[in-house]
Structures are given as structure tokens and as C-alpha cells.
Nucleic acid binder design. Structure first.
Lengths: 235, 235
DNA sequence: CGTTTTAACTTGTACGTACAAGTTAAAAAC
DNA sequence: GTTTTTAACTTGTACGTACAAGTTAAAACG
């Protein structure tokens, strides 16, 4: 069975974007250019671009072209409000634990499949601050299969997802969340520099990726007193 | 300027679904049927159906047809896990305040536009329980313009959104959330039957609708001890 | 009667054409 | 030199055709 023509063009362009040949804000080739370079009709070229639009890689502008965009914004991911995308970028991230092989932790709230349990896992933890104030602790686990040479490389622009995309061409395709309000444990309270038993927001996340059967698990602990967690969804 | 042909078909089918002429699980007319009834080509019929798919009204199945689906599931809305969609449906909702004209409440976290402030608003509040255990309190506000005869009608299947869709053909098109972990106030604690100062999850929501400039504001207070709040997003 | 084949449906992909509509920069008019 | 017009691009809509591929029930076969 042969790969669909539109799928071929779609994957070609996606790879170019992932590799950084087209930076955010730049324009992809026009529909007619794609037609001649791939020997296809506009119907097929349009279908490929339409799919990239659905996946959140591009925006399309009538009369102008297809513009590469920050994909993260198309995902309904939770984010600390006024964090990372905020204007005042006095935001810092420190590693509590650099990526390192380890064991699947019982702290993970989502159910881990048999296949994953049989593999070894990589763990890392980070603390995120606004100014000098710590606002979030983030524990992450993932199966270390397929990501050759992973624990040992630096994150591109400090972003794990960006590294996953550019180095391994793996994209986030979805996520599941579980939200709980809890009293901070002694450990968490100390790291967030808040009184013991302060209310904190505990978020358990299971990220789905373009690589089937490969998931990323995160447990987040947020001090929402000054920086609430935000989320937005639009059709 | 004339309405686009595909848009006409799209809106026609959408209205049929909203009015309940096509129930969830039933099939829409096939592409070829749409072609003959509307005197259009398959390209146009497909475009209309493709749009309904994007909006979450239908699923499409190769070789079978377009099936009407529960739209809620396509929206990245927060929901109480094991609630409403759960198997054991011993779930109940009681009104703390039936829909009634009132004032815009300062408890609303999102900014309310000038236009909205100049209009009067409708308020209602509900308590949701699993068995005998209260798990969530929900305060809602909306501008009462356009929804003629609203405060006074019963909710269809107890759902405000379903009522909005079937009676007024207004759909939820997106939402913004702000999440906070807080200590329960005396009032909230009493309603949720939990000790004063227990940690609760406070969610502020601004729903966007198909009716531009019309929003719904909610403030939710959840006891997540036994029923965490869930959310899932898929491409 | 039970199985296999066929035929008639469905949606999916891909071809080609034509014109509408938004954008932009060069050419023409003033 | 400034403004207006035009022309050359872009994407959007809509036409029509053909075949591929998934689904299902009736027809043919054993």
C-alpha cells in the first residue's frame, strides 16, 4: 500500500518545521509552488496544508500564505498564568533532578501499562520561579526506549517538548489531567517556601504523543496564591 | 454578499441537530443525498460535513456515514471525574439558587466588559453530589439579553448547555479557566460539609459562545478529596 | 442451509478547471 | 512626489470527473 500523496507532503513539511528549516513566523511555500515541486494538484496541496493547520503547526491567511506558528498555543495545555508567555520574563527554572534512569514512581496517579513497567524509565524534576518566588514543582517520568542518548543532552531553549520535537520528531498529541487541592507536604512546602499545610494545587498529567504507546507522566505541585494556573480552549 | 453554499448546508444541518431532529447516534444524509437535495457537488457537501466535524457535532466513518455525536466530548472542558459520565449514576444536582435576575457579582474573577456591565444579569447556583456527598458548588452568571423568557424554563435533561443549544441555538465555542487551591470559607465548607479551612479547588471559568459578545461566567468550588477534577485534550 | 461472491451503497483520495476575494508591490496617473 | 490604478501574487469556493477503499445486504453458489 502506497502512502497518500497529501500525507507525504504533510510529513515532509512537518519535518522541515520540526528541524527548524522554517522558523516560527516564516511562510511555507505557496499552494502553487507545492503543486509544481511535488507534481500534485492544488486539491492535494491544500489537503496537506489543511492537515498541518489541524495539527497546529501553521496558520493560514487569506491572500497571504501559510505561516508557521508556535504549536504549543494550539494545545489545551495547562500553564501557569503570567508564566513563560508573560511580558515580564523574570522567570527561571532550576533542576531539582537532572534526567536520570530510575524507577517508575508510585507517586504517578495515572495507570502505567505493562509494557512501560517492563521498560526502564527516565526521571527529572524542576522547580519554576517567578523572580525569587518558587511557584511550581514538576516531576516527570517517561520510558527511555527510543530516545537514544537522551539523558545527557541539554534542553533546547529549556523546553523538554521542543527538544522532543526537534531531536526526535515526537509531538504532543493530547493530554489527560487530574486536579486536586491538597495540603502541602513538608517536603513540598519547604521547596515552595510556604507554611506547612498551605493549600496547593496538585495536577497529574498523562501526555499522549505522536509515538503510539509512548507517554509522559508529570506530577505538578503549584502555589496558586499569586500565580493561578490557566487554561484556555478555543474551537 | 451571498452566503457560502457550504456554510448554508452546514448551518442547515447544525440547526437540525440542535433541534433534535437527528438524535445522537443517528446518521446524517449521505454526501450524495446532500448533493441532490441542495443541488451542489460533492466537494461542497464534503466541506460542510468537514466543518461540522471540526465543530464536534459529528463523527465520520469511512464506508458508513456521518454520525451525530455528543458535542461536549469534543470540548476541552473540565469535569468532575467519575461524575455524569460515570457508570454508577447516583449523581444529583440541587439548585441553591434558581435562575433569577440580579447583579454582576464581584466574586467573578474574569473581567466583565462595559457592555455587559450595562446590561442586567441572570444568576443561578447549583450543588452537585455523588450519593449523599456534596462535591461541587457552581455559581453562574450571564447577561440576560437575547435569551427571552429564560429565567422560568426548565433545563433540558438538567443541562444548561443543552438548553442553550436546543432553545437558543447557542453553542459553547471555547473557554478560559483559572485554577486556584484555597482554604474553604465558612460558607463553602458548610455547603460541602467539610471542615473549615479544608483545601478546595477553586475554578473560575469564562465560556465563549457562538453568539459573539455573549459569555457565561462560572465560579466552581470543588472538594477533590474523593472526586478529582478531570480534563482531557486530544488532537 | 451455510458460505461465498457480488453489487450497491458509503466516505476517501486525486485529478483538472474556473472564478472570487484578500494582499502587495510595481506601474500609471495626477 | 503623491496618489491611484493595475497586475501579479496569495488563499477560498465551487464546479465536474474518476477511481480507491470500507461497509453491508442481497444474490449466487456449494
Amino acid at each position: 500500500m502506497e502512502e497518500r500523496r497529501y500525507k507525504h507532503v504533510q510529513n515532509f513539511l512537518k519535518l522541515q518545521i520540526q528541524k527548524g528549516y522554517y522558523v516560527v513566523g516564516s511562510y511555507l511555500p505557496s499552494e502553487n509552488e507545492l503543486c509544481s515541486t511535488f507534481s500534485i494538484t492544488r486539491t492535494t496541496a491544500r489537503k496537506a496544508l489543511e492537515e498541518l493547520l489541524k495539527e497546529g503547526f501553521i496558520d493560514r491567511q487569506h491572500g497571504k500564505g501559510s505561516i508557521v506558528r508556535e504549536r504549543r498555543k494550539s494545545l489545551g495545555l495547562l500553564n501557569v498564568k503570567g508564566f513563560s508567555e508573560a511580558v515580564g520574563k523574570d522567570v527561571s527554572t532550576v533542576f531539582l533532578q537532572h534526567p536520570k534512569p530510575g524507577l517508575w514512581d508510585p507517586a504517578i496517579h495515572f495507570t502505567i501499562s505493562e509494557t512501560e513497567l517492563n521498560e526502564s524509565c527516565v526521571h527529572f524534576a524542576r522547580l519554576r520561579r517567578v523572580g525569587e518566588v518558587p511557584v511550581m514543582i514538576e516531576y516527570n517520568w517517561l520510558a527511555d526506549t527510543g530516545l537514544k542518548g537522551f539523558p545527557g543532552i541539554d534542553f533546547i531553549e529549556g523546553s523538554f517538548f521542543k527538544t522532543l520535537s526537534q531531536h526526535y520528531h515526537i509531538e504532543i498529541t493530547g493530554s489527560e489531567h487530574e486536579l486536586r487541592a491538597e495540603n502541602a507536604t513538608k517536603n513540598i512546602a519547604a521547596l515552595l517556601k510556604i507554611p506547612h499545610d498551605s493549600p496547593i494545587l496538585h495536577i497529574s498529567v498523562k501526555f499522549h504523543t505522536s509515538n503510539n504507546n509512548f507517554f509522559i507522566y508529570s506530577e505538578l505541585y503549584c502555589n496558586t496564591e499569586n500565580y493561578p494556573v490557566g487554561n484556555s480552549y478555543h474551537l
